[in-house]
Design a protein around this nucleic acid. Structure first.
Lengths: 351, 351
DNA sequence: TAACACTCGGAAAGCGCTCTCCAAAGGCGC
DNA sequence: GCGCCTTTGGAGAGCGCTTTCCGAGTGTTA
């Protein structure tokens, strides 16, 4: 029963039992040593670790989870609406810097905690129900929720089921769930006031879908700020956060309000689209029309001219979400709390 | 024992045992019905499903995995080198469209197969060893490997351990492992010939790190193609696939060869950086210098001018990797195979 | 009607681990 | 030297599920 043999693929892997036999103690003792529980005679301690090394033993997580009810896994669930159940949309979603930034932020925290991230997509209510069932069964210790649809039953189902969960972005309807969010209204205000301060007179906006919270807040924040400065009405065209939709929205905005000289776009990707349309239309940025984007994603610096944009500290937010979740998993009594981040304006060339 | 009670968080979840009791049969029968095994009396079949519905039963995956040795999970492991063990690099990696495209491609296949994806990062040899141990223990049914370092022991460890694995991008050293890859040399050739056909006389290249296979192949392919057309020597500056490094590389290239009129960049992100530097230097693209990028990522269409680029069908490749892995998991006897994709040139404004 | 081949459901043995109980051993004061 | 408390290791009962092995019941044929 040597180390080498355990590295070969055919061989049965060593179990606690095997280690116990090699060390000449009982299973229980090996388990205690490995989990560092109670005082075990230092001598035995050493003997056991030696046996572990010799056998090449690796604890079986499945078996351990079965009894401890802990998996060392956190799920990142992307809750999508049924209408988007087809691939193309999801592909676009994953390719969006948004997704990567969230994953990066989460991993920075989870990795150090030795927790792995499992990706889950649910697109139907059936799927949501199954997911919550699996989660309650201990499939994962907790879940980070990225909710895309305007109305989503998932947050409620999760809290009802007692599943530790943290949302990125607030839920549409009030639900006693942990979440981290950005002060979207403030961000929109920042953009509006910058455009105004710059001397723009006819300012428009390209928004996201009006029914998702983040998007809604950016619209209302922008409207409110503009109104405060005497602009009771502003032209708004809606997109869906993709570059293509930004191009299209810019076209409609341009035909509706040809004299535009300032523009706030609800995310950088759409702003890049707008930039393209504008260039096509022969408008110079920022001279003819000044643009402020939103997110400060990689698209902002890649754009020409580089985008002045509202910084959305997604990585930090995701990291905080992970910390919140870990804390909640540790302490089930923890009450729902939320953390709101303040956006800042990043000045570049576009405005 | 009603449905509602099982949805409350305090309550113990129903087990097979509970369902059996409600249905008035044995655990074994319920298990058979649920897994659709053997002929069970249609009547009982119905009774059991009814009991499942009434109790709100969800099978416990952990317990099931423990005995079936199947988890319904595939791991996406990002194998990084120790030197990059700090967060910043990883964050950048996740934000890169590359990562998102791979995840999107994988999920499109895995999702339909009802398999979940677990994200794992390993940065040390210690970590790699633990990972392989966990994997052999059935932590996941198989693994998709994204290997970043120039020399990486992981592929070998995986095959030695008998862990079903598929790499995205060929391994540095020959290892009997499944992989999907792009004909990088061909891609570079496509770029070189397009630049040449366009009439460029002094063509340079911005490459990635010379020691990683994909990058290496793009360099050698480019060099070879240029040599075939009488350009025995081409100026090359290396970056590391980030936009910043592209800007820097462009600057050095510009000082070394100020008369450049054509440029091949090993990925779009760096091409965008090059574009920025070029603009700063007052060179027009494509009039003064024509640029061909690589990847056809979202950065290519976002750039101004939009990038002519070599299309890297990453989503398709990742999807194929997932299919290959699933097949390998189904059939352990399957021998290592690889699929090489042919790149194509996408014409836009930059060249 | 008896013998046989089938079909179908149940009992029970694990999968690999944790952890509660319990017994044995050692240390202490009186 | 004896009883009592503390430390330490082992036995064993599960965690929730699958699956083999059997026995009972049913239908079929000689």
């Amino acid at each position: 029963m040597c180390y080498k043999s355990f590295m070969q693929q055919g061989t049965r892997l060593p179990t606690l039992e095997d280690v116990a036999r090699v060390a000449g103690v009982s299973r229980a003792t090996v388990s205690r040593v490995i989990n560092g529980i109670r005082n075990v005679d230092p001598h035995l301690h050493e003997v056991v670790w030696d046996a572990v090394g010799r056998t090449g033993y690796v604890p079986n997580r499945m078996a351990r989870s079965l009894v401890t009810r802990r998996t060392g896994t956190v799920a990142l669930v992307v809750s999508d609406s049924e209408s988007h159940d087809d691939d193309p949309f999801m592909s676009r979603f994953f390719a969006d810097p948004y997704f990567g930034r969230v994953v990066g932020g989460l991993m920075s925290v989870l990795r150090q905690a030795g927790v792995q991230l499992a990706l889950q997509i649910v697109g139907t209510d059936e799927g949501r129900k199954r997911l919550v069932g699996d989660l309650r069964n201990g499939q994962a210790d907790g879940v980070i929720v990225l909710s895309l649809p305007a109305v989503d039953a998932l947050p409620r189902m999760l809290t009802d089921g007692g599943v530790p969960a943290v949302m990125i972005g607030r839920p549409t309807e009030p639900v006693p769930i942990n979440y981290v969010d950005l002060a979207n209204e403030t961000g929109a205000t920042l953009a509006a006031e910058h455009l105004l301060a710059r001397g723009c007179q006819r300012i428009g906006m390209i928004s996201g879908p009006a029914d998702v919270p983040a998007s809604h807040d950016r619209i209302s924040g922008f409207r409110r700020a503009m109104a405060r400065h005497g602009h009771g009405w502003v032209p708004i065209a809606a997109g869906n956060f993709t570059q293509d939709s930004g191009e299209a929205a810019m076209r409609t905005l341009l035909t509706e309000s040809p004299d535009l000289d300032g523009l706030f776009v609800a995310n950088d990707l759409m702003a890049v689209g707008a930039l393209l349309t504008l260039r096509e239309a022969g408008r110079r940025v920022p001279d003819d029309v000044a643009i402020v984007g939103f997110d400060d994603s990689s698209a902002a610096t890649a754009a020409a001219p580089a985008l002045t944009t509202v910084r959305h500290p997604l990585e930090d937010m995701a990291a905080e979400a992970a910390r919140l979740l870990l804390a909640r998993i540790e302490d089930p009594e923890m009450r729902a709390s939320s953390v709101i981040y303040e956006p800042t304006l990043v000045l570049r060339q576009s405005a």
